[in-house]
Design a protein around this nucleic acid. Structure first.
Lengths: 103, 103
DNA sequence: TCCATATTTCGAGTTTTATCGAATTATTGA
DNA sequence: TCAATAATTCGATAAAACTCGAAATATGGA
């Protein structure tokens, strides 16, 4: 189980529209992943800005990269995303186990 | 379905250790919720700092508050948390298009 | 080797967040 | 009304994050 600190870091990384979109694109891309250049074409932002965001995502363990000749291919790290989901759906331990007490 | 912007805001709110802990405590507390004072006792941080974080969580739609005489009781907003989980587990649409292609 | 492509690192300026004491507001009970 | 409790708002400061052009690095091909 992730620590709270670790999870907070990962969530913070996801908490930026550009980075969230990157992850969403990578989820859609699935096994094929996307190169940095392809992501840049989708987002239309400067390369240096994109690179900065990508390195955040790598740091947060949310994506992983593999060099493929001159291009760097990015992939979602499902394990990390699932870890966050687990943490957020931890409502099995909520009070008297009564999920969804919402109005 | 939440917009990306909305989701990014909510994730950013969760992406702070203090705020994540607040939400975790509230999930544990379940229906009973926790008053601001009770949360403060658990976290041992200044009231003004806590208040600031709580207002972030309210803004992000992650928690809701109800006044109960002099105390303010906080509750997790499961709907919002589930919205984030949905968005993060959207990997059904990864790569080769499986059903649930989009609504 | 030299060039083109793909991407990152550096550095500087801007903007946003976080922290927390002091002052303030809200509510209840005496 | 006054005092006590619960919590927020204000205001100032400190710390972190974002953006992006320019320069640098990595790779493969001519």
């Amino acid at each position: 189980m992730m620590t709270t600190e670790e999870a907070a870091v990962a969530l913070a990384k996801l908490g930026h529209p550009v980075r969230l979109k990157i992850v969403q694109y990578l989820v859609q891309a699935g096994e094929a992943g996307l190169s940095v250049g392809e992501i840049q074409a989708l987002l239309e932002i400067p390369g240096s800005t994109l690179s900065h965001h990508i390195s955040h995502l790598v740091t947060g363990g949310l994506i992983r990269q593999e060099r493929e000749s001159r291009t760097l291919r990015c992939f979602v790290n499902y394990k990390q995303v699932e870890g966050l989901v687990e943490l957020l759906t931890d409502k099995c331990c909520a009070g008297i186990d009564l999920p969804k007490a919402e109005a």
